[in-house]
Write a protein that binds this DNA or RNA. Sequence first.
DNA 1: ACGGTTTTCGATTATAAGGCGAAAACCCGC
DNA 2: GCGGGTTTTCGCCTTATAATCGAAAACCGT
Lengths: 248, 248
Amino acid sequence: MRSHINSNSPLAHEVLAAVLQVRSATLQVLLWRRALDPHLGRWSLPGGRLRPDEDVEQSIRRQLAEKVDVKQLTHVEQLAVFSDPYRVPGPRVVATAFLGLVPSGVDPAVPEDTAWHPVDALPRTAFDHEAIVQRARDRLRAKLSYTNLGFALAPKEFTISALRELYSAALGYRVSATNLQRVLSRRGLLVPTGNTAPSGRTGGRPAALYSFAHDDMQVTDPFAVFKPPAPKQGRRSRTRVSAPDTVT
Amino acid sequence: MRSHINSNSPLAHEVLAAVLQVRSATLQVLLWRRALDPHLGRWSLPGGRLRPDEDVEQSIRRQLAEKVDVKQLTHVEQLAVFSDPYRVPGPRVVATAFLGLVPSGVDPAVPEDTAWHPVDALPRTAFDHEAIVQRARDRLRAKLSYTNLGFALAPKEFTISALRELYSAALGYRVSATNLQRVLSRRGLLVPTGNTAPSGRTGGRPAALYSFAHDDMQVTDPFAVFKPPAPKQGRRSRTRVSAPDTVT
DNA sequence: ACGGTTTTCGATTATAAGGCGAAAACCCGC
DNA sequence: GCGGGTTTTCGCCTTATAATCGAAAACCGT
């Protein structure tokens, strides 16, 4: 190793995605098993080489659609660049990592060699992929609090309890259904669909179904000290729309 | 152009930084004038090619230290990857963009061909550098609200009014000194140094000097709905420390 | 009809931010 | 040295948002 340090340094660029989904009340990530050396048999993130005619966003979307059938991807955003010169053996490869989200409930068809793994109990992973998964998880957790990113994790219709479980799984600790309900409502993000859930097995009051008001990411600004006077709107929490990765 | 689309696509990686500083009550960015074609004479961001033996962080720090004497850089963080295949003419170059901050007050020596420009009134810039500057500005503005990133913009000691001007300039609108004072105090970020400012020209009560409590970036979580019970600490706002770019 | 269960909602409390004005602390000129 | 002018600082009050709690509502099965 350390071979390319003095070479003419051909450099490749790859894109990788940590695709997260809540399944069985656990936050999981999609990994596939390497069939090649190095790190044969280890689990790694989907992705691949950047092609000459695409930017990194296009590339990761193509590769995800190619390798694993996840057109159900509801959210994709850049995470960070991983560029340690020796992050992979052999010729240098710089990686742009992404965070991808799949709504709970669906079970996208995936190839034989891929499987979901809990982010907090990863198998032996290849290269620096574990670090990337952690970063993705952290980013998701941070953003769940001050954005409506939950929309990307939830199905189109859901009950408050279902949403609560979703958030609990994603965040790693219990959250109050009551509070979740009202905080999201206050922010104008929850709209009742009118429908009601099949009351199901255990009995109990049938839950109302809700959906998110927006499919694009919105950011609710935390504090106002640093905010302009805000032209005295109606109710609605002070909420500002911005491009998905403007805020990150 | 569009020449490399069918070639064997050698690919280069460069790092660029939007180094921001508040000078003359205006948020400005350091640019240098290109001496080469293409885009000769236009203003562009400092940076350069990634070397084989360094990662992007090391690279941008080296290049900044090299090209412009800014060892006074108090903060550096990854912004995003810019990877449009045709973002620069000729062979493809993917760029990792950074946000850099220099505290107000200092005036680092810079080469002849570099100069500061207000971010809201940029001259004609090269390539996609204007977009990068805007992203840097947006990121800074967002983070000023919910982090203590102000520490990187402020000198070691400062008065509340000075800090207010700093925030006003960086954010682009007036903020209340009173509120700024108390919000930062509540978060435990402002510590009085005991010293007092030279009362100076206009007369008036001499201002007390403060400094930031932490030099590493901290994030104050906005809402608690999604937060664990918080083990009943003393006072101090609920505040969580995290690696600079974990949250971004 | 009656427990058992789950959801929903209102009332109350807690915490953080914003606004306002008075008091404090300094300078200067008379 | 005293009052006017100026800037800073601080307390008090209001508003906005979140957290907690408990009771009522709506369903099931027996």
